[in-house]
């Protein structure tokens, strides 16, 4: 094996048939794989410095009572040393079970779950509906497609402001509703309507991605399957149910997972739509940001603890999702 670049080499290492001594193994490993390591070094350094180290440091901060008044800082020429102290798991205890923990954590938690579920369901259903329409032979199909991906093409931080103008007290939406003699809710002030508006804007932003990926999935379904189904007398609904949906399964599994992760972590829409004015409409991500950076004094420790809790929720969810897919024998490679 002069050429070490193939999978066989690696697999042979895994066999562990005659196991040489540790020194020999290290030497062999080094000789065979030194350039693999050399190529991974940059990213390992980047990940170590930019992800692992901050993560560990963040974990440490959650075990302290750090805020902007007791961390090290420099005011003018005076440097003030950090005075925060280690308090163990008190932050987590306080967030999850402390007094008013319902208002501070659980209400946001429930709203985040609702937000994620509703948004992803709307993204998926509308996206699939539009993809099905665009998958037909239709005049002006490319034109529709180009217009429909516009919400994805324009940066979110731009479009959210467009929505903000539209939803303002006497903006175009309420003017139109008024002209139709419908009630005109205070979109950006009333809690329920804030949440409604946030879901609406996020749906608007997220549908194009789903539409385009599902359209790709639809076009990769073998058309002979449809012909066969038609020969067997399947009607349109049956063709959709027994050919289209199974054909989309692996794409769906991927985009739904991505959608859930992205929506759960969606920061820009809620932050830009309401700023710090709507405590009840904040999902956990924006709420954690508010605790750490939107108020005075900045509560770094609690904010970091929220971050760790969020990550834990996502990891648990993803592993269940994968297990559930595996049980249903889905092709899902992530």
């Amino acid at each position: 094996m002069t050429v070490a670049i193939d999978r066989a080499t690696g697999k042979r290492r895994g066999d562990r048939a005659p196991r040489p001594g540790l020194g020999q193994r290290l030497k062999n490993g080094y000789q065979k794989h030194w350039y693999a390591y050399a190529m991974i070094v940059p990213v390992a350094v980047v990940l170590g410095v930019l992800v692992i180290y901050p993560l560990v440091y963040g974990l440490y901060l959650t075990l302290t009572d750090a805020n902007s008044l007791n961390t090290a800082r420099t005011i003018g020429v005076n440097h003030i040393d950090a005075t925060y102290k280690f308090i163990g798991l008190d932050n987590y205890k306080d967030i999850l079970f402390g007094p008013t923990s319902y208002d501070r954590f659980w209400s946001h938690f429930i709203w985040t779950i609702v937000w994620t579920a509703v948004c992803v369901a709307l993204h998926y259903c509308i996206g699939l509906g539009l993809a099905l329409l665009l998958d037909q032979k239709l005049r002006g199909r490319t034109f529709y497609r180009l217009i429909l991906i516009l919400p994805w093409a324009v940066p979110t931080f731009v479009t959210v402001f467009g929505w903000r103008f539209m939803l303002a007290d006497s903006g175009i939406v309420n003017t139109a509703l008024d002209a139709l003699h419908l009630p005109t809710p205070l979109w950006l002030e009333d809690t329920f309507w804030q949440r409604f508006a946030a879901i609406m804007v996020n749906t608007w932003c997220g549908v194009p991605f789903m539409m385009v990926t599902l359209l790709g999935g639809l076009q990769s379904i073998d058309s002979t399957l449809y012909e066969a189904a038609e020969m067997d007398g399947a009607n349109a609904w049956q063709r959709f149910r027994y050919v289209t949906l199974p054909g989309l399964r692996s794409v769906s599994a991927t985009v739904v997972l991505l959608g859930i992760i992205w929506t759960f972590n969606q920061f820009a829409v809620i932050f830009l739509l309401f700023g710090n004015t709507a405590p009840d409409a904040q999902i956990l991500v924006t709420w954690a940001y508010f605790l750490g950076f939107g108020q005075q004094p900045r509560d770094f420790a609690q904010s970091a603890a929220y971050g760790i809790l969020l990550l834990a929720i996502l990891i648990v969810f993803t592993s269940f999702y994968r297990r559930w897919l595996n049980r249903n024998e889905q092709q899902f490679a992530i």
Partner: peptide
């Protein structure tokens, strides 16, 4: 590690990064 990093919410790294 590569996979998990993709699902980091901004809130996880924000505070330690800032520090």
């Amino acid at each position: 590690v590569l996979l998990v990093t993709q699902m980091f919410p901004v809130a996880v790294l924000m505070v330690p990064m800032y520090q």
